[in-house]
């Protein structure tokens, strides 16, 4: 028996919003520690890695490890039926071919259940090597979303260049070019608005705008985002989900033709 209950369905709704443009289907691997999901987009350019820890749920029970293969557009349709303040419970029997979502309104006056067919997914799982990154940049997630959106107007790629002084995002194309430079903040009123850079060595890498914009669908999950970069390795874009886990996106860089 697998059962996981969240007091607020909004976390799960936001998680789905954060992955459903990149992935059409994915396996939720459930064990004692919680729920893990790892999946690449169809073109194998990016990867989503989601962790929801058991202790972040209001109730969590997983008697046997279970893999729930889900069609994410179906799951998204079902989660749209939950009110933001509803409690959500995911349930599956061992060896089940369905998963059930139960939504309960705060006053318990409305209880809905939706059963969804599971899929047998045989997806490739990748080993991600432990990496010491040359640069990590922490900034407001809303600011990062804004930068990606603004620069997307200028070209298909964004160059991210990190030095001791700060981080520069650049794009260029038919209409011209754009540069946004963020300096490390000296002092801020709100911690989540700070720009914090840790740098061993300067790094400049080029990434596809389209994917960065997909990643920013996770903005509502966290006030901050962390970018980790090293020369010639995939970028990591991490959103920490308060009290329950994180979502990380990996994106392969572009290289000169």
């Amino acid at each position: 028996m697998f059962e996981a209950r969240l007091l607020r369905s909004s976390i799960l709704k936001k998680v789905l919003e954060a992955i459903k443009d990149l992935l059409t289907q994915a396996t939720f691997d459930c064990d004692d520690n919680g729920i893990q999901l790892q999946a690449m987009d169809n073109s194998h350019v990016s990867l989503v890695s989601l962790t929801l820890r058991a202790d972040g749920f209001d109730k969590y029970r997983c008697d046997r490890n279970i893999s729930l293969g889900m069609n994410l557009s179906s799951m998204s349709k079902i989660l749209k039926c939950a009110g933001d303040k509803d409690t959500v419970t995911m349930k599956a029997q061992d060896n089940a071919d369905t998963v059930t979502f139960v939504f309960e309104s705060p006053n318990q006056e409305k209880v809905s259940d939706y059963e969804m067919k599971l899929m047998n997914l045989d997806l490739e799982h990748l080993g991600i090597p432990e990496t010491e990154y040359s640069c990590t940049i922490r900034l407001s997630s809303a600011e990062f979303a804004r930068i990606c959106r603004d620069l997307s107007q200028f070209g298909e790629s964004i160059v991210i260049s990190c030095t001791k002084e700060g981080v520069r995002f650049s794009a260029s194309g038919d209409i011209g070019s754009a540069n946004i430079a963020l300096a490390q903040t000296a002092s801020v009123d709100k911690e989540e608005e700070a720009v914090v850079i840790e740098m061993e060595e300067p790094v400049t890498l080029t990434f596809a705008c389209q994917y960065l914009n997909y990643f920013t669908k996770a903005t509502s999950l966290s006030p901050q985002v962390q970018l980790s970069m090293s020369a010639d390795v995939p970028l990591v874009v991490e959103y920490r989900i308060p009290d329950i886990g994180h979502i990380r996106y990996y994106l392969a860089p572009k290289i000169d033709d």
């Binding site: 194998h44 350019v45 990867l47 490739e124 080993g127 070209g155 298909e156 596809a208």
Partner: peptide
Amino acid sequence: SGKQQTLMNFFKKS
């Protein structure tokens, strides 16, 4: 603007 690499260039199947 540059050639897109895939993750297979960096990560191994496990």
